[in-house]
């Protein structure tokens, strides 16, 4: 009973943040104005501001946060490594590079279909798997291999950036920092649909997923095809990360922090995917809100906020004398 309550703890926080995200900004709205903007009757500008600007941005933050939180939880369950996340493993950079390539190869000069990011993430995940010689090995090795691959992909991205005309390069650079500014319904709805499909898949394999915290031989003993399960989980995580990059660019450290906080909330067994996803949504919504109001009228991109706060967090994890936790 209490466990269920603790797992639901992020939900009220998320609702509060969502409300704040609709209210805050220029102009500041009141609760009744938000209601009028959402459901009418209200002035045209009010309805446009709420339903066409703030609401899609909030939904984008939710999609990105849920995706990152779930991807991080899947990867950490998979690698049994609390530092594994799509940004450390280079998956986000792969997705970003795929987007940059789509921009270069597109004769119209527009950013290619955003599912390129998903394709890039999947390819990178397979590549990291091969380079690290299996993702199930405990330890830092897979992380540093991922770091190497991330640098390699970043180099590719930098070269792509250097060959682009300045107008495109500036836009792409801003995207590569990770930002939710100006995300509109067409992107958000498709991404949300894809996210829904991927989360359903997570739900379908949730029983097998819970086994991943057991010893390899025990899992095999239960008649589960371990290699297949691992590959499925890795692909799911990569696709989730790819969706988030397609919407908001690479946003670091959310996928690292969310599973860890989720495990604090329910400290038994593996890392709870759903709890991690909701905490991811809280983190991204909160970081985006903070970026919007902290230095107003200038907007700090959400990727900058998450990097600024996430770096010290990772440092703290590493220098802490004894890493605690189950597993």
């Amino acid at each position: 009973m209490t466990k269920a309550v603790r797992r639901l703890a992020p939900i009220p926080l998320l609702l509060m943040l969502a409300y704040a995200a609709l209210v805050a900004g220029t102009p500041r709205l009141s609760a009744s104005q938000v209601y009028a903007g959402l459901f009418g009757p209200g002035a045209d500008w009010l309805s446009t501001l709420v339903t066409q600007f703030r609401l899609p941005r909030l939904c984008a933050a939710l999609v990105v946060g849920i995706g990152l939180g779930a991807a991080g939880a899947l990867l950490q369950n998979l690698t049994r490594n609390r530092l594994a996340s799509p940004d450390v493993l280079g998956i986000n950079d792969g997705a970003l590079l795929a987007l940059a390539l789509s921009l270069m190869l597109n004769p119209t000069g527009l950013l290619g279909p955003w599912w390129c990011a998903v394709a890039g993430a999947l390819i990178t995940a397979v590549f990291t798997l091969l380079a690290a010689g299996g993702v199930g090995t405990r330890g830092y090795r897979v992380l540093v291999v991922g770091l190497g691959i991330a640098s390699l992909l970043r180099a590719g991205f930098d070269i792509a950036l250097a060959t682009l005309p300045i107008f495109h390069a500036t836009g792409l650079y801003a995207f590569s920092v990770g930002s939710l500014a100006g995300r509109a319904w067409p992107v958000v709805t498709v991404a949300a649909a894809l996210l829904g499909i991927l989360l359903t898949a997570c739900w379908v394999i949730s029983r097998a997923l819970a086994l991943l915290c057991l010893h390899d031989d025990s899992i095999r003993g239960l008649g589960v095809n371990l290699g297949q399960l691992r590959f499925t989980v890795l692909m799911l995580a990569a696709a989730l990360a790819g969706v988030t990059v397609g919407v908001g660019g690479p946003i670091g450290f959310v996928a690292l922090a969310a599973p860890m906080l989720a495990q604090r909330l329910s400290p038994d067994g593996g890392i709870p995917v759903w709890c991690s996803a909701s905490i991811g949504a809280v983190l991204v919504t909160g970081a985006d809100l903070l970026g919007r109001i902290a230095a107003a009228p200038v907007e700090v991109p959400v990727g900058v906020v998450s990097g600024f706060l996430g770096g010290p967090f990772l440092l703290w994890l590493l220098v802490r004398p004894k890493a605690c936790g189950a597993g």
Binding site: V177, G252, G303, V304, V305, F308, G310, G311, L318, V319
Partner: peptide, 23 residues
């Protein structure tokens, strides 16, 4: 490898601040 990961954390913090100043 732990030191490398700590460097990654330091890089991320510095890099995000630099990117913000640039933007």
């Amino acid at each position: 490898l732990r030191l490398v990961l700590a460097g990654l954390a330091l890089t991320a913090t510095c890099h995000s601040l630099t990117a913000w100043l640039a933007l």
